[in-house]
Design a protein around this nucleic acid. Sequence first.
RNA 1: GGCCCCUUAGUCUAGUGGUCAGGACGCAUGGUUCUCAGCCAUGAAUCAGGGGUUCGACUCCCCUAGGGGCUACCA
Length: 479
Amino acid sequence: MRDVRVRFAPSPTGYLHVGGARTALFNWLFARHQGGKFIIRVEDTDRERSTGEFGRMLLEDLSWLGLDWDEGPGSGGEFGPYYQSERIEGYRREAQRLVGENRAYPCFCTDEELEEKREEQKQTGRPPQYDGTCRGFNERQREEKRKSGLPESIRFLVPAGEEKRIDDIARGEVVFPAGMVGDFVILRSNGLPTYNFAAAVDDASMRITHVIRGAEHLSNTLRQVMIYEALGTGMPRFAHIPLILGEDRTKLSKRHGAPNIRDYRERGYPAAALVNYLAFLGWSSQGDSEILTLEQLAGEFELERVSDSPSIFDEAKLNWISAQHIRAGGAEKYFTGAREYMPPIFLERYAESDLKKIFDVVSENLPCFSLFEQEARSFSPGIPRYGGETREKLAGAQDLLGLFIAGFEAAGELDQASIRRVIKEAGKAGGVKGKDLFLPLRLALTGYEHGPDLTTIISIRGKDEVLASLRRALREIQK
RNA sequence: GGCCCCUUAGUCUAGUGGUCAGGACGCAUGGUUCUCAGCCAUGAAUCAGGGGUUCGACUCCCCUAGGGGCUACCA
């Protein structure tokens, strides 16, 4: 069997979208699983919308996700260049070759004429297809048209009466009946190729063996198959993967929150988590774990297990997967990443070892690093400030607070054991236990009713701050 | 309008003629002698509808409905 070569072919018209990222991921996983090559080709023939800046961002996001490419921008390769804008001559040459072989022909119809014909066809209930006006022109007629300065594009001559079928790896056999499309443009009048043509020419010349792409391209496959046949090169196999939809079941877009990889990256989701979640959108593992690394995913990825129906992007599930990764990786793997999201005051006041302890506690359930501040608020250095509501809840706990103060003052070094002892003895002396014992202490120290284990909070906050907070709380309720 | 594709709980999915239709997220309840979280346990919830084929359909075929895509000198 030929060595597997797959490609991801983004157009640099925006940030890397989760849909595109998943397509790239499936390609990458397939290549790695098969021991083949993963290639990046930038499809920047739409001059209106493509920018170099987006191109750079796209590649950066891909790298961040861990999807390294064997050939493409920055990696070289023997089938370059890997930007379509640098391959224009090739498309023109191929297009001319097809004209010479009578498989394509120059077309001089103007936009206005085309638009008019389409409207007319629609009105009369006919499928809007190119009517073949320029198809039969001989060389003299063509020259005449050229002389009159009409725009000249090149159309593919669609062979009549041929049904086409492809054996899609992900969805099985797909049949395209004859007459589905009319002669379509392969080279625009501005000299640039259209998507279908450029993609087919490049896939052929880059020796792509498997085209794995979004299901929105399924219908395009018919045109590309015809181009391949005309080109006389081998045909790749196709695998169309289902689309990713938003909650409202329409194609994922800006309206659905943060559909860009960059957004999730900025919110502090680990790349491994994103990639893990994306892999399970439209694909399923045979194992029973849903928490897998890129390497593990590559180990068992198979296109045959890609589902047929579109899936909805579910941030709740992403959050769960991400929290699992962060917890499993712990401080060893994720502390550095999380550190960037820690409030400055934490960084100023706590030693690295304490920051790590806080991270350990908080990462029991942390979907992304930007949530750290919120989740770690019980550890905020300094004396908590709270309002009347908290003061009310604290009312009646003066004696208890006094006992805590006395106990912590008397205690030596505050470690887990001594902290527990102080709390226990204060409870005994005050005649309270359980919630009545812990809640006042928690409120006085943090200002919040909920939070991590109190002994951990106390040991990290330190004796001075604990005492200062307790005294402050006592003063507050004595006012 | 034409053509192509899709349809299992709220969500991601397993399933390829005979299963109590399995798992995960989320949700609910209980436990874990401070809370939240975590963890453990339990629970509610699904084959879009209708026809066939068959001894037997979630599984095969047809129709309907819904969704998506293509129908461009966008990709």
